[in-house]
Design a protein around this nucleic acid. Structure first.
Lengths: 344, 344
DNA sequence: AATAGTAATGCAAATGTTTTCATAAGATTG
DNA sequence: CAATCTTATGAAAACATTTGCATTACTATT
């Protein structure tokens, strides 16, 4: 009997228990200053007694915001993104929103499906990774005109708000560092660039910079691996086992770079004595490994926070202007790079 | 004008455009077999033309499920959890649910707030990490009686469904391995156990096992660190710098263990020659580091999947029975442990 | 003391669906 | 060919809330 009562506790039940009208209960939640403190107290007590929990679905239906924000990432399970997700989540949480998260495993058609799903839930805003999406996705966002932000990449001409790094530049910086140390025999270890504009941009930055110094990278020094330490380690082992091996490995990100370092150590090669390794990202842990990883720092945490703050702000202020933020990049030189050993 | 039309596109607009009633439109979504294929086609076309997207909030309000599941974790930003989150997310996604995720940073009062927030969104199910929660949280779950599952720990007498490992046993296995190699001078590197029953259980398993072999751990060999490679590395450096240092380090999890390995390497100590290191968890990357980390494997991915499958199943079948799954643990011996060097 | 102004509350309409029940038109059977 | 059964559809109520408008009871002003 008590069960049945508590189970259903809706705003009307609360109103009855507090001997006021539902309107007043609603107001005491949404516009507390409009209701008499004494009445408010009665209501609060009734709420507690009945264990009432507001129903956001009903609010949403009435035209209010849902209080949710959708985030679509390629994968959650990665240092790369988990850091951004965390700070993004914290930022929107501070603004009173809740995170609806989905991942698509680098499949842009699944991304579209996820987008649709989030829209069905009437999220108040959407955050995506990068700029590479199906036209169906773009159209849908445009049509629903819902605040959207692209995380992780920066593009000056972007029509979508964005917070991120210039990945071409990141690639350039990494290449420059190796060139400045005197390396000319450079191996590339990158993920597949399809459905991943970050990787594509970085790679083209690298290639352009090397070309400007007349350095070319033969095909057998261009390898491909997913973002996995284990797999990266394996392809690097293969690469370093070649008769003629590069003096430096430029990696698509820090996860791959860690694999590269472990691969070298595994083969008894000294890093950076025999082979230099540089990553991109500066993930958690890169600083602390032995030797510390030289890398291009992309401030993931800052990106997540700015994106979250900006998106919630755009939602609550109904500001439709496109916002772009390019975060600074920095070459962090640690222990995995050095001048090439000229003997080899 | 067109804008206004598309903007609002609701089921009634679709019905008008397709010259049928809203009921029929609704049915063509929810019970397609009940509506004439020809009519269905008309509706589909209207939906496409208007860019209509169903409103889950309205469905939820009507008493349907919200199609969301809430997950509350201490932190997203960790190999530990990001793996579980990923597989949990995939599992519920496959069942048509969407993930609402929140984190509380190991603060159980915030956890309560998050729980409330999720309940306001009328999630169909809740997943939490571990069994240590405030009574307020427990009461709330009980009162709302919503399917709930505890992830990551197993407890035979649990009143809540659970999928996870017996952490006491994990601690025991780690201790046994070190003892079996002949270590008796063992240092402990654990996180704070407050609000973290996993860590507490592991530690008591370790201590009990050591005590059974008459091994005691002096206070200065018991150190505390958050789950962070950098911080773990630092406290291990301090620990290993003691005049009288342990021959083995037993770490609360793999993140800490990685820090311990890097600390040793940093100080020029050979692992496992001078110091053995064992972790708990077997996270992504543990296998691939150099040397490979000896650890107690907890199958995170499997736990996430089983938890997701079980929870969605409990929701859709309205099965209220408590479900418990204890996953197997395994001591994976790799390169960071060896017999102690008797010289020291 | 009468009028205007204000503060607190209630009433009822509106929000976008789903579902039960009713109805109409065909198909099937004796 | 009438009676029954199906199949496809529509009308209307229900879900839990918010909010514009109306109402009441005070307080302040002249």
């Amino acid at each position: 009997m008590i069960d049945k009562k508590t189970r259903k506790a809706d705003i009307i039940a609360v109103a009855k228990a507090a001997r006021v009208s539902p309107s007043t209960v609603s107001r005491s939640f949404n516009h507390p200053q409009m209701v008499n403190p004494a009445t408010r107290k009665k209501i609060t007590r009734a709420v507690e007694r009945l264990g009432y929990i507001r129903n956001r679905a009903a609010q949403t239906m009435h035209g209010r915001r849902s209080g949710t924000i959708g985030l679509i990432v390629p994968t959650i399970n990665h240092t790369i993104f988990s850091q951004v997700i965390q700070s993004f989540s914290d930022a929107i949480d501070a603004a009173g929103f809740t995170l609806l998260i989905t991942s698509h495993g680098y499949d842009l058609d699944r991304e579209y499906a996820m987008l649709r799903k989030l829209l069905e839930h009437r999220v108040d805003g959407i955050a995506l990774i990068g700029f590479e999406h199906t036209t169906a996705s773009f159209n849908m966002i445009e049509q629903q005109d819902i605040p959207t932000i692209a995380i992780w990449n920066y593009m000056q001409e972007s029509t979508m708000s964005c917070v991120g790094a210039d990945n071409v530049l990141a690639g350039r910086l990494a290449a420059q560092h190796l060139l400045s140390l005197g390396h000319r025999k450079i191996g590339l270890v990158f993920p597949s660039v399809s459905g991943n504009d970050r990787a594509g941009d970085r790679q083209s930055g690298v290639l352009a910079t090397l070309a400007e110094s007349a350095v070319t990278v033969p095909d057998f020094w261009r390898t491909q691996t997913p973002y996995s330490i284990a797999q990266a380690k394996q392809v690097c082992i293969d690469l370093l086992a070649l008769d003629h091996r590069p003096t430096a490995l430029l990696c698509g990100n820090d996860v791959i770079a860690q694999g590269a370092v472990f691969a070298s150590q595994h083969m008894g090669l000294n890093v950076p004595g025999d082979v230099s390794v540089i990553g991109i990202g500066d993930f958690v842990g890169s600083e602390d490994m032995e030797p510390g990883l030289t890398t291009i720092r992309i401030p993931a945490q800052k990106i997540g926070k700015i994106a979250g703050d900006q998106l919630t702000q755009a939602i609550t202020s109904e500001n439709n202007q496109v916002f772009r933020y390019r975060c600074e990049l920095q070459c962090v030189v640690r222990g995995t790079t050095a001048r090439p050993n000229m003997n080899c």
